[in-house]
């Protein structure tokens, strides 16, 4: 294991994050604050409690999830796509470093960035709504697992993408709809029965549900199932990445 190489990649990626700290942090914090103002204060005050929680507090886990997913995905996708795009990837590919180490470096940095942003948003949430976290350990666990698995997914997209358009395609066309339809802003028990079944095919439902459980102690689907789904998704991403490096897909000629 070339630990120094992992650290070099991780550090290099984190330096990019700190170089653009203002835009990396301000933009998600601002947009989340807007959600709090609109849904929490303006509209939320007219919405009755959901599962015994005020609507403003109810949407906090979903909003954090929304940011976590898009941030982990785009950070990781950009992190590996950019060196591919400008050509500096040659150095990583010619270094005495295994595939797994490359993934740890890039994905670890992307996951760290989105975790930092997620925690900042959580802190922001406390400023807007009354909030308590029933299972802090599991909250962190869901946070870490989600960041990791979606950073892995983003890594795959970054390798697959041939242009900046494609890089934005998946977050825009797939992730955002899934998050909005994944119970971020509502409890799936509010849906008609048919749609309750359909929505179970949306993986984000499990993420939001599990994460919300760690806050309020109850969830749309069982916590065990949520956890299992994240782990399955993580393993699928790892398998795809394994295949990418074995075949050199879009990396080697």
């Amino acid at each position: 294991m070339n630990y120094r190489a992992i650290y070099a990649i991780y550090r290099f990626e984190m330096m990019r994050f700190f170089r653009t700290l203002a835009q990396s942090v301000i933009s998600p914090v601002l947009s989340t604050s807007l959600y709090f103002i609109v849904f929490g204060a303006a509209i939320g005050s007219r919405i009755q409690e959901v599962d015994g929680v005020s609507y403003g507090a109810f949407i906090v886990p979903g909003l954090i999830m929304l940011s976590l997913l898009t941030q982990s995905l785009t950070n990781a996708a950009f992190g590996i796509y950019f060196p591919k795009f400008i050509g500096t990837i040659y150095e990583v590919l010619s270094a005495p470093i295994g595939h797994f180490e490359i993934v740890i470096g890039y994905v670890g940095a992307a996951a760290t960035k989105s975790m930092v942003i997620g925690l900042i948003i959580l802190a922001t949430a406390f400023a807007f709504v009354d909030l308590k976290i029933e299972h802090p350990f599991w909250m962190i666990a869901f946070l870490v697992l989600t960041c990791l698995s979606f950073a892995l997914f983003g890594f795959i997209i970054g390798i697959w993408a041939k242009s900046f358009d494609q890089l934005n395609l998946v977050p825009m066309l797939v992730v955002t709809p899934l998050v909005f339809l994944g119970g971020s802003f509502y409890s799936i028990s509010m849906l008609p029965e048919f749609w309750q079944k359909v929505t179970l095919f949306n993986p984000v439902v499990y993420l939001v549900s599990g994460f919300r459980w760690s806050f309020f102690g109850h969830a749309d689907v069982g916590v065990g199932i949520s956890l299992a789904m994240i782990v399955v998704f993580l393993i699928v991403c790892l398998l795809v990445i394994g295949w990418i490096f074995r075949t050199g897909y879009r990396l080697k000629t």
Partner: peptide, 15 residues
Amino acid sequence: EKVLNAVRFSRGLFG
């Protein structure tokens, strides 16, 4: 990237 950091990165990358 700063020149020195770019060179440090390369050194670390090669272990």
